[in-house]
Amino acid sequence: MSKIKWQYADHWRTDSPKGPVNQFASRAEMDRFIKQIAAVGLRGVGMFAWNLGAVSAMFGGLPAYNAFLAERGIEKIVDLFWCQPQASPGMTLHKPEHAGRVMGMLDHFAGLAGGLGVENLIVMPAHGYVDTQPVDADRIKVLADLWNAVGRMSLEKHGMKLGCHHEFWCGIRSQDEIDQFYALTDPAYVHLYIDTAQHVIAGVDPVALYRQYAQRVNGFHFKDTRHVDTVEDYRSQPDPELCASTTPRWFWEMGTPGGLVDFPALMQALKENNYEGWIGVEHDKADVGGGNYPESTALAMWYAQNVLEPIFYGKAAA
């Protein structure tokens, strides 16, 4: 039995006579999406938490969606993802008085997915950097307290591990900020969810980060990048992933020429730490500049099965 399984993280968009559509437009689009990812060896899906409602309505309930997935070769929803990129008067993550609202919202989303075997609740642990600043020890402590509480609720009430996913433009983005945050959070309740491209862009080595926090890692988004942010593009407004001064496209599929993520080294580190579980494949904005999500996904899974799995399992086993 495989120790690692691959899952796909939600971002998907293809052309249609109506313009671009995603898998939440109809059962027919969902059918095409799921069959495409199953065809190339993916066995799970990650979902944005706010899409649960649409999927439930489309299938008459999430258990029916799970059955739909199984009929097509996908085991289950593995992760739920949530973030709040902008601070707002009604919800500011680093205001202690708003902690109850955050807790309530995530309790609601996790509750929707009850009984489906969802393993992880993934969050961006701060707003974007500009909305979080000043990022100092006091602010990081407030955020750590929030996620300690949410992580405890998530695990004890819903059986989901909380994982924190650090976008390159997140309020907690540098190695020092990450170290401060994990020093203040409870290893039993707050885990690190490594997005390989986001860390590289932020100047953090994801291989070293994994080796440092291996026992706290509860999953990955494997994607690549060709750029490191050296000019504070993470401050770009309104969306640093779209409005950066240095590149129109930050994210690429694994195996892309010029990719800066050292996936073979990361896979070797996973092997040495006896990692077992899911690895997410993610393509964010794969269609910028003429690419497309299906081809990026096929190429990434070709790389995963032909380059990475032999490293993890040893060539003979592969």
């Binding site: 293809t14 190339v40 497309n292």
Partner: peptide
Amino acid sequence: SPVPATSAMLNGWFVKN
């Protein structure tokens, strides 16, 4: 095919499954 990769993946799924 408007998206060749999509066609290949959907056809691959159908042939295999």
